[in-house]
Amino acid sequence: MLDFINPYYLQIGSFILINILLAVSVYVPLSSGQLSLGSAGFMGVGAYTSALLTINFDLPIMVGVVGGACVAGILGIIIGIPSLRLTGVYLAIATLGLGEVIRVIFVNWDSVTKGSIGLTGIPQIGRELLNLVRGFGFEPSMIGLKNNQFVFLMVFLLLFIIVMATIWFVVRQQNSRVGRSFSSIQMDEKAAESMGINITYFKVLSFAQGAFLAGLAGSLFAHVMGYISPSDFSYHRAVEILIFTVFGGSEVIIGSIFGAIFLTLIPEVLRFVSEYRYIIYGIMLVILMAVRPQGILDIHLLSRVKGLKRSKGGMR
């Protein structure tokens, strides 16, 4: 009984949820027309901040995660203001450079980050939660679960709640004054400015939100993995995150979510072909991008589906 609560599936589920956060962190700046490739860097900042806070100062994970996300967000504001003058591909290159600078700092700041060896012994969310519920006299065996099943289930549920809250926030924001400003800036910056929208404020806001979300994802990643090293935050990661969003469809948030789920799942599902799985993965990307350059999901597709169902909810 309850065998389906398998650590393996839940582990992948947790990575999917973290990747969704990362994909959304690219989506938000993109919704105001800014292509940011700094997610990997901000993720690293969040991860290292949170890991160092919890290891060196024995702070609760909660504080570490919030701290990590905030530090990344503040860095986002600091970087966001000067890079406002850049648009499109130039901003992409600048942020990619930023990510690499951050990674090199992790590598070289030996005394704090332990260089390329990375940080070990980061407290893990699941085990802390297990200790917490045990403090209340609750044992996983009381609901027929093994300890490690319980741990992974709790991590998954916690991440699920965080991701749902994030998506809810982003969707709400999109249908608000702020979201409308974002999309007007995306459509035409000059026109938006002449309509009285403070583009500096909104551009920095969306960029910093992206940085905050990436930092949040990074700090959660650190506490799920229990070990981080600078190689986790290289430009490979930045490109991977960008692919989630672009592949799934960058016009709608559901596209980023779908991209993250699908592209995290595929390498695992393809495990049975072992060496060939990344070849298949690559071929799939090429074909799908050739057929649907705007990404799998876009507004037209969604409204068609909606038309079929005759519902009128505003999910985008």
């Binding site: 389906f4 398998n6 393996y8 599936y9 992948i12 589920g13 999917i16 699920f160 749902m164 998506i167 809810w168 969707v171 709400r172 559901i254 789920i261 799942l265 695992e268 599902v269 909810g313 505003g314 999910m315």
Partner: peptide, 21 residues
């Protein structure tokens, strides 16, 4: 929106579970 999103999620997670098992 939230309800829809969570429905979408649950379906995907279920798919994932069945696919893997």
């Amino acid at each position: 929106v939230l309800r829809k999103a969570s429905l979408f999620f649950s379906v995907l997670m279920l798919l994932l579970l069945t696919a893997c098992s």
